[in-house]
Design a protein around this nucleic acid. Sequence first.
DNA 1: TGAGTAAGTTCCTAATTGCAACTCAATTCT
DNA 2: AGAATTGAGTTGCAATTAGGAACTTACTCA
Lengths: 169, 169
Amino acid sequence: MGRTADYSKERCSVAATLEVVGDPWTLLILRDAFRGVRRFDQWQESLGVARNVLAARLKTLVAHGVLEKRRYSEHPPRFEYRLTEKGKDLRPVLITLSDWGDRHVYGEKGPLHFLHEPCGHKLRPGLICMDCGEPVEPRSLRMIHNPKSQTVGEALAEQELADLEAEAS
Amino acid sequence: MGRTADYSKERCSVAATLEVVGDPWTLLILRDAFRGVRRFDQWQESLGVARNVLAARLKTLVAHGVLEKRRYSEHPPRFEYRLTEKGKDLRPVLITLSDWGDRHVYGEKGPLHFLHEPCGHKLRPGLICMDCGEPVEPRSLRMIHNPKSQTVGEALAEQELADLEAEAS
DNA sequence: TGAGTAAGTTCCTAATTGCAACTCAATTCT
DNA sequence: AGAATTGAGTTGCAATTAGGAACTTACTCA
């Protein structure tokens, strides 16, 4: 049937996230959004992505509540896309992706990095457990998987309903 | 020309990582690898991915040094795939993806989570700066982008050379 | 001898991406 | 005033890719 990967029958939070941001280009669109890109043509020029694909991606990101579409000019009707809080919460994903690319593809000379202003260093991110404050060691984690929970598709549908209700109020 | 997203001309560590793990299914293949999956048919059954696609993904993950292919039986020739150190370093990416899905799709009732054994809580991951130890606040980061650095394609090519030399020695 | 398993490969079809050109509404240059 | 430009897409077509199922290869086990 040739459609692209469909994770909606998985029961997994990783798959759930990928169902929203896992399409080709989507994460780079979001990277640009964090850099301040808000308009169609800025993305198009920055990424060189096909315009129809960009239009489709923006539409689904808006549908999932990651970006918000706003009219910023009435008279020539013009729109911009801004990260919602939900979208901004994806920053750690971008940071960890960037860090891996830096260390394993570019070998410390990465072209994109984050400056941590309080200390003035290039950010080397580390994960901690917010409950005990300790750094997360690989050995200290157990992966737990509850096969009885909702599928990604079910959870996304419910999420959309909740979004609609929130808007209505 | 209809080929799927090609990030190799970007100059960006995020794009670099996605060039390696950004194909459909790849991150779920890695998620399973972290859960202990090592064999072709285990992945095939767990994901329901087409076998040709799975074979192709495993091949590129091995080529990029994220997985290692080992023969675990001589006589019926049988192979398994294990995460390399480079592959294990992707764990923070999976953790942040999982955390976002948990919070924004499943709403705290996620089907997959990580148990932090030292403190016994479900892991709520937080990012810190490893230089100063402070938590990373969105406001405290500046994104720096050096447009003169290598493209993703150049860096990956160099990386592969380095891998080959390391093997030869 | 026949069934079963692991790890793929091959073949075909259907979706999707990529690309370029085109639309539409309004604004600015000449 | 008319022409060109800008922003934000849409439309149509060709080239790939993913999906699906069957087929191969090389053994083991009953």
